[in-house]
Design a protein around this nucleic acid. Structure first.
Lengths: 281, 281
DNA sequence: AGTTGTCTTCCGCGGGGTGAAAGCGGCGGG
DNA sequence: CCCGCCGCTTTCACCCCGCGGAAGACAACT
């Protein structure tokens, strides 16, 4: 296998994901299919055929045929305006992701309660490579923050949820992130490896991550996150809330956040959360 | 275009989705990739390589290479037990589905409130071919009904949510469903085209669909659903609740259900729901 | 009418994809 | 212990299918 296991572990999906230069380049048929899908992203949820062609680096002819096949299968669909978008078949398939389905099914009631109790933005994230992917996200009524939504993906170092996952991840994963470039989203984003290392140690010590304005500076935001543990007591997810910075007493959120996380952990069978108090008769 | 637009509009995904017999058969490379993905389903969320090979009808060699590529890209991932499952990358991609993302983002607060108020199973579904696909699903605390979850797919005629979508769909779609086989899930499922036609007319007249035990007979269940309209006043989704049959006064659910649906419709810009009452200052 | 952009169709060449076969490793039973 | 079974991985050579170029159909501006 000449390919890297994970060519570009997320982080860099702002521009088009062109295939390797076609000069002498050998692209597999499967990679072309994936390149078509890769053309879509949060900022490009609907595209014309030509746009898909450009962003994927495929010839218009090839794009045309592949899009036709993907559409027949249901992976893509054509809207009323003639533009292409992701089809419901992919939504159906994506919902089968183990960390998405099982985890979300178990956690939703707890996350729901937390959202109702705090009225804050609540997210539940899992680690995928060097990124955190949200499997559940509930927006506060007022906040129109589009940062957090199901399927959202961000570098681990730039969010509270990600920092928790990174802090409890394999040392190997940590080193990979620490040695790689740490993209800055705002001036407050941690970009110094040493500072990140200190932060992670602090997260491990306290069991809580607090990130202020690491991801966006539009509206001062404070993210607080805690780990969720699975049957093997390993950290399988991260539960976080985001509130207006300086607003309410952020520290007051920690107990209820921890209580919710423990509830989910217990439901997942985590030993450390097993002193059963039984959430409800 | 010699291909059918939608070869097999859902409904039949119980068994393996073998490719057309390989005897003289010509399968495109893209179709092989899709066949691999097709091997996964609600009842087969994690598979071994050999299982994928069998269910997709591809040779073990081809399966091995394709799975490798899909895994490198993030479409598939290998669990701790060595079995393959859907990767988070597909969850991320599926979340971009227009009817999934935009609609869900707008509707979640309303659906959330409805769930909190009624404590019932709540689903929000859109039509895809002859099926209804759930883009949001909230389970009641007690009920462990696995019928309704995000990404769930059921024939239109067998659920209340689907009947609403079918009743307001293009006549062409209706005829397609009415002329096709109507699979029975329980003895109560409507399988007679004439009966279904009457039901649809009733749904159009009253604006409400009530389906009892159409999908499952384990626990007597009653599903009530109403339409959600978009900017063009066309029905874009269906909002439904499922409660224990005979239990609480099901009719009492209709007003709150309608109120919620109107709220979503208004948020989507539906003219008929525009006499703005402003949900919240 | 000219221009630009899009989508669609057709066709011949070439190289990536395919299946068969053999090698690898773990498991359980004789 | 040794063997057979099962699932996974790797290699290889042929050949068919997918690729890109080019040209045509269509729509929207200028």
């Amino acid at each position: 296998m000449t390919r890297q296991l994970r060519p570009a572990p997320g982080s860099d999906r702002s521009g088009a994901t062109r295939l390797a230069g076609h000069a002498g380049g050998s692209a597999t048929a499967a990679s072309r299919v994936l390149a078509v899908l890769d053309a879509f992203g949060p900022a490009h949820a609907s595209l014309t055929l030509s746009e898909i062609s450009r962003r994927s680096g495929l010839s218009l002819t090839t794009t045309h045929r592949l899009v036709g096949e993907l559409r027949a299968w249901g992976a893509l669909e054509r809207g009323a305006d003639g533009r292409y978008g992701i089809g419901l078949r992919l939504l159906e398939l994506g919902a089968l992701a183990p960390q998405g389905l099982q985890l979300r099914e178990v956690a939703v009631p707890y996350v729901d309660d937390l959202h109702q109790a705090t009225r804050a933005n609540v997210v539940l994230g899992v680690r995928d490579g060097s990124d955190v992917v949200y499997v559940e996200a509930l927006r506060a009524r007022g906040a129109v923050r589009l940062m957090s939504r199901i399927g959202g993906r961000w570098p681990l170092h730039a969010t509270g949820t990600g920092q928790v996952l990174l802090a409890f991840a394999d040392p190997q994963v940590q080193e990979e992130v620490l040695s790689g470039p740490l993209k800055a989203f705002t001036p407050y984003t941690i970009t110094d490896p040493a500072a990140l290392r200190r932060t992670l140690a602090e997260v491990r010590r306290t069991g809580v991550a607090a990130a202020e304005n690491h991801l966006t500076a539009d509206a001062p935001a404070l993210a607080v996150a805690v780990p969720v543990r699975g049957a093997g007591d390993e950290v399988v997810a991260s539960l976080g809330v985001t509130v207006a910075a300086g607003a309410t007493q952020a520290q007051a959120l920690v107990p209820v956040l921890n209580a919710t996380a423990r509830g989910i952990s217990r439901a997942l069978g985590a030993p450390s959360a097993q002193p059963a108090v039984r959430r409800r008769p």
